[in-house]
Design a protein around this nucleic acid. Structure first.
Lengths: 168, 168
DNA sequence: TATTGTTATACTCTATAACTATA
DNA sequence: TATAGTTATAGAGTATAACAATA
């Protein structure tokens, strides 16, 4: 690579940083400055996980966001758009389009709340509830691929550590 | 110019903070179906971490992506755009705009490589190198806030677990 | 022919503001 | 007045494709 000579010169200038950079790949080693930043690591992880989720659920054409709305609606029917949007950290204007797509596919429907006619209560349709079995199976297959990649023990650790962010 | 983007980002952060600790209704329990999905957990974590990074580095108006490019260029000067983009998982067309912004601020400069005149070698400017001390200090302050939130032990565990994604 | 950097387009997601219909 | 849902717009980020200069 073109940067090798320059890198050697840099080692002389900054001996402390270059001490163990001998025959390892330049960039691979020098990314070390970012290795202590969880933000960088978590971005790489999210890219991998979301890409695998989308790929695994391609047969049913569901994104992570769509799946999360279906899961919460299935588990807790009758909630309003706003309640679910807040809970999942989805903007309410974004939620409109998300629900439009799910309603167009007859997986979910909005009904005007009898107690507050401004609100829309959300319910899965009969076919939506039936489809959840396949959705969950595919999501489970995705999660198992992640377990395969990082190991069951670290997977459990990861979920435990990240649970600190659920209520933010 | 840069101040506008900064202001917008800051508003986002302030609003997120203001609404953070409000609603613990029955949805909190029913989110359980997503509890076993690392993708959901990791998205929530990334939102928190990136918002805190942006807020903490607001005085110098640097995004996580800009910071990562500066860090790698500082540690390993003379690399080409493509080499750094590949390493950081940034699209090469996106990298063009990132470098435009950093070059406009005189933090970094592109020079035509003498060995391959298609390539641009990247170096920090003198003022860019000098500014890195403050950037690193602020990024360190951000990371300490994360350590405060999840604990030093889990922070170390998190970095170790997520390192599995660095080479993907 | 292949690659580097660049430009352009389309699409997704986020943030914001305005509008309506209710409350 | 305030809130739920909707619509519209602007800003980032991502994914592609095409192009010129160079290898």
């Amino acid at each position: 690579m073109a940067g090798k000579a320059l890198n050697v010169r840099q080692k002389k200038v900054d001996r402390a940083r270059a001490e163990s950079a001998d025959d390892r790949d330049d960039l691979a080693f020098h990314i070390e400055g970012l290795r202590d930043h969880a933000g960088y690591a978590i971005r790489r992880a999210q890219v991998w996980i979301f890409q695998d989720f989308i790929k695994t659920l391609a047969p049913v054409d569901l994104t992570p966001a769509q799946y999360s709305v279906l899961m919460v609606t299935d588990a807790c029917p009758g909630q309003t758009q706003m309640a679910i949007a807040k809970r999942l950290g989805i903007e309410r204007s974004r939620m409109v389009h998300l629900l439009d797509s799910l309603e167009a596919r007859k997986l979910l429907r909005r009904t005007v709340s009898p107690t507050d006619r401004r609100s829309h209560a959300l319910h899965l349709t009969t076919s939506g509830r039936a489809a959840m079995a396949q959705f969950k199976a595919l999501a489970g297959a995705h999660e198992r691929k992640l377990v395969e990649k990082i190991g069951a023990r670290d997977h459990a650790q990861l979920l435990r550590i990240l649970s600190a962010f659920h209520s933010e």
